[in-house]
């Protein structure tokens, strides 16, 4: 099956230094691909590259990113805009800053829905309910302001907005890092549940291998801009080939851990 999104030999530099160095990976429908790395590894920049949203001062040097066969970097501005949010959606790390604090939740979702297609008012309303249901939020949420919602609820709301246009590719940048551990589990279960039904191509960015274990099918490990290991989750976790991968896996303390010291 052909990849929905292909990143090929992407190199991105900032101040003449490569921050992404010859990176390649594919995203397939129905699969969750985890991009694992620590701060400075280039994982968030890779995600931003897919949407051509690199911050100023950061220039792409070489490589291409193909979405359904077309190179993203060759597209015109309007074509790119119609893809962003619509065909490729992204959820960022901080649920607090992604929402407008002075708009009620219902309005923000409605805006996301209506951003790319024309709907009648009742269609929008119906869609809002559908989406809230998908992310397991009660429809009462519609009248709330972001600060009245908990972190987990905000993240669900943002997820709902990302899903509103039924994207083919969903990029999640550390979506649970800022959340409490029990909420994290709920959100991860939610993502898995959505994936079972809808078969998106999901790029899941994280620094925590135990989260990878919970959600991913495939794994790419990034270090200082390079991919040091790629493969199926089970294989990489059981048999990490690169020492950095091994280090990332080993240095997480585990429940029932008998070790007195952590490696590294």
């Amino acid at each position: 099956m052909d990849a929905v999104l292909k990143v090929e030999n992407l190199t991105v530099t900032s101040a003449k230094r490569p921050v992404i160095d010859d990176v390649s990976f594919d995203l397939h429908s129905g699969e969750v691909t985890a991009l694992v790395g620590e701060s400075g590894s280039g994982k968030t920049l890779s995600a931003l590259s897919i949407l051509d949203l690199l911050p100023s001062g950061v220039i792409r040097k070489t490589g291409k990113i193909s979405f359904k066969g077309e190179n993203i970097f060759d597209l015109k501005a309007e074509e790119l805009e119609s893809i962003r949010g619509n065909d490729i959606a992204m959820v960022f790390q901080e649920p607090f800053t992604a929402l407008n604090p002075v708009m009620r939740a219902g309005i923000q979702i409605s805006e996301a829905i209506a951003a790319h297609k024309r709907y009648t008012d009742s269609e929008v309303k119906g869609r809002v309910e559908e989406l809230l249901d998908m992310v397991r939020l009660s429809s009462q949420v519609v009248r709330s302001y972001p600060h009245e919602l908990s972190g987990g609820m905000r993240q669900r709301l943002i997820l709902a907005m990302a899903l509103s246009c039924e994207p083919e590719v969903l990029i999640l940048d550390e979506p649970t890092t800022a959340l409490d551990v029990s909420i994290q589990k709920e959100i991860l279960d939610l993502i898995k549940g959505i994936q079972d039904n809808r078969r998106f191509a999901i790029l899941f960015i994280t620094h925590d291998f135990s989260v990878v274990n919970m959600v991913a099918d495939k794994v790419c490990v990034m270090k200082e801009g390079r991919i040091v290991e790629k493969g199926l989750k089970e294989e990489v976790l059981k048999n990490p080939k690169h020492p950095y991968t091994r280090k990332l896996i080993d240095c997480i303390p585990r429940l029932g851990d008998k070790r007195k010291r952590l490696p590294g």
């Binding site: 029990s182 994290q184 991860l188 919970m214």
Partner: peptide, 20 residues
Amino acid sequence: IYASAKDAYTRQLLESIPEI
């Protein structure tokens, strides 16, 4: 705590931990 937590909330927290 980790082998035989008595409280329900504790157990809920323990169960939420993603495992490798």
